[in-house]
Computed example of a mutant assay.
Amino acid sequence: MQAQPLIAVSDVEASSRWYQTVLGARSAHGGKDYEQLMFGERLILQLHRWEAHGHAHMGDPEKRPYGNGVLLWFHTEDFDEAVERAASISAVVLDGPRENTNASHREIWLRDPDGYVVVIAGPYGDTGM
C-alpha cells in the first residue's frame, strides 16, 4: 500500500509549479482542474481544484485553515537541494531548516500557496547542519 494524498487548491497550475519546484517532482497529468505529481515513477501528490467536478467530500473552500491538523510530509535524500529549491521561489518558511534530534534528521517546514503546511525531511541520520 502507498499513500496518494490529494489536496484541494485554488489554482492547480500554480500549485503544480510550486510543488514541482520545491519537491523536484514532475507533472504526470497537467490541467486546470486536476494534476498528478510524480517523483521518479511514484505518484506523490494529487492536486484538485476546489470547484471542479463537484466532489461532495472535498471540503469547503471558505473554511480555513485548509488541512487543519494534517501535514504534507515528504522524505527526501537531497535535503539541501530541496531547501535551495524552496529558497529559489521564496517559499514561506515556518521553521528551519533545522535538526530534529527526536527523528534524527533535518527538516524544513513550509506553507504552500493555499496555506497547507508542507514538511520536507532529510534521511534518517542526516543531522549535519
Rank of each mutant, 00 (worst) to 15 (best):
S90P: 09
H53W: 14
N68G: 14
A52Y: 03
E81Y: 09
H48A: 06
G69Y: 06
D112F: 02
R98F: 07
V83A: 03
I108Y: 01
L45C: 05
D80L: 06
V93S: 03
L71C: 15
Q46V: 10
L94A: 08
D60R: 08
W109F: 13
E62R: 15
W50G: 01
E107T: 10
D80A: 06
S88P: 05
F79H: 00
E51M: 05
V92P: 06
G54H: 12
E107K: 06
D112W: 00
V70K: 07
T101L: 13
E99L: 08
R98I: 09
E99H: 10
S90A: 15
E62H: 13
T76P: 02
L43T: 05
W50F: 06
K63P: 02
N68F: 11
E81T: 14
R85G: 04
D95H: 11
S88V: 04
R106Q: 04
A87S: 14
F79S: 02
D95L: 13
R49Q: 12
V83Y: 00
S104N: 14
W73N: 10
L71H: 15
E84L: 08
H57F: 14
L71Y: 15
S90D: 15
N102I: 09
Y66Q: 14
N68Y: 13
D60V: 04
S104H: 14
E77V: 08
E84R: 13
G67W: 07
S88K: 05
V70A: 15
V70S: 11
A52S: 12
G67Q: 07
E51I: 07
A56T: 05
E77Q: 13
H75Q: 13
E81H: 12
L47W: 00
G96I: 01
E62A: 13
D112S: 08
E81I: 10
H75F: 12
T101P: 06
D60G: 08
F79E: 00
G69P: 02
A56S: 09
P65H: 06
F79T: 01
V70H: 09
L47R: 00
Q46F: 12
I44V: 11
V70N: 08
V92Y: 12
F74V: 02
W73F: 14
E81M: 10
E84G: 11
E77N: 09
T76N: 04
P61T: 03
G96A: 04
R106K: 09
I108A: 02
Y66S: 11
A52D: 04
I108T: 04
A86R: 00
N102A: 14
W73C: 11
E62T: 13
R111E: 14
H53T: 11
A56Q: 09
R64P: 08
D78S: 13
V93T: 11
R98E: 10
R111H: 06
G54A: 12
T76E: 01
T101H: 14
M58K: 11
E84N: 12
R42E: 06
A103T: 10
R64W: 11
H105G: 02
M58C: 10
V93H: 02
S88C: 07
R106S: 02
G69N: 08
L110H: 00
N100L: 05
D78E: 10
Y66N: 10
I108K: 02
R85H: 09
H53K: 14
S88W: 04
A103N: 11
K63E: 15
L110K: 04
N102P: 07
A82F: 00
F74A: 03
D112Y: 01
E84P: 03
P61Q: 08
F74H: 04
Q46L: 11
G67E: 07
R98M: 13
P65G: 07
